[in-house]
């Protein structure tokens, strides 16, 4: 088991008014799984992804990541786990515009203190694989949305994480570019990386093995879609 959420609740308090974002969520993600989270806006998808990505703490319940209880771990511990085991892909790519594509992808390796030669080798290989090697010295704003998302995926993958959390990875892309990105995620998943993806798109969700539907902060249904290798 890679990730497990047990009776997780998340409540936000704003000016004394409490809003329940997640209510009694029980969910697990196995190593090598591809899970999609779907649901209408405001159903708690983002809150769930934040908690799964160790970016936020649940109000109640427990999060177990790689066998460790981490729901109340401090920020350093959670940063360590994110750095070493989780890759993020954002809807708006979130590449750092002052860095070239190469440097954006290289970034996670820099704070993992990987040697310069090893960094060069790994970034080069990944860029080749994702067909963006020729954009190495370009800045994010100089390449297409599809290429930016490939770069974002490369950045998420460079540290060889156990889990990729993707937030609407095709949300800002046309259908052709969106399909390319989804095929890439499937390919990575088939190589053993777990993927959890939040999406509104049922087409994108079709690429996953399991679809979780959320409604009003509660897990409604789980559908098995694709057969795991």
């Amino acid at each position: 088991m890679l990730l497990q959420l047990i009776n997780v609740e998340k409540t936000y308090s704003n000016f004394g008014i409490e809003t329940v974002a997640l209510n009694d969520i029980n969910l697990s993600v196995n190593q090598g799984e591809f899970v999609s989270i779907m649901g209408p806006s405001g159903c708690g998808k983002s809150s769930l992804l934040n908690i799964m990505g160790l970016l936020d703490k649940p109000t109640k319940g427990e999060v177990i990541f790689l066998g460790d209880k981490v729901s109340q771990s401090n920020s350093s511990k959670r940063a360590f786990l994110r750095r070493n085991h989780i890759g993020f892909v954002f809807q708006s790519f979130n590449l750092i515009e002052e860095l070239t594509i190469y440097e954006n992808i290289e970034l996670p390796l820099m704070y993992l203190k990987v040697s310069a030669s090893e960094r060069k080798k790994r970034v080069g290989e990944l860029m080749e694989r994702l067909h963006i090697a020729h954009k190495s010295n370009y800045f994010p704003q100089q390449i297409s949305g599809g290429q930016q998302q490939r770069a974002a995926v490369a950045r998420a993958l460079i540290s060889k994480p156990n889990l990729i959390l993707a937030d609407e990875p095709t949300g800002n892309l046309d259908s052709a570019r969106g399909q390319e990105v989804m095929e890439m995620l499937v390919e990575l998943n088939e190589e053993g990386t777990s993927v959890v993806m939040v999406t509104h798109s049922s087409t994108a969700a079709e690429y996953s093995q399991r679809i979780i539907h959320l409604f009003d902060g509660q897990l409604v249904t789980e559908n098995l879609k694709r057969v795991t290798n």
Partner: peptide
Amino acid sequence: TNMIGTLKALGSSNGQ
């Protein structure tokens, strides 16, 4: 803000 958030998500420490 966005860059700081991204770096934190990627695992950068506050100190870095």
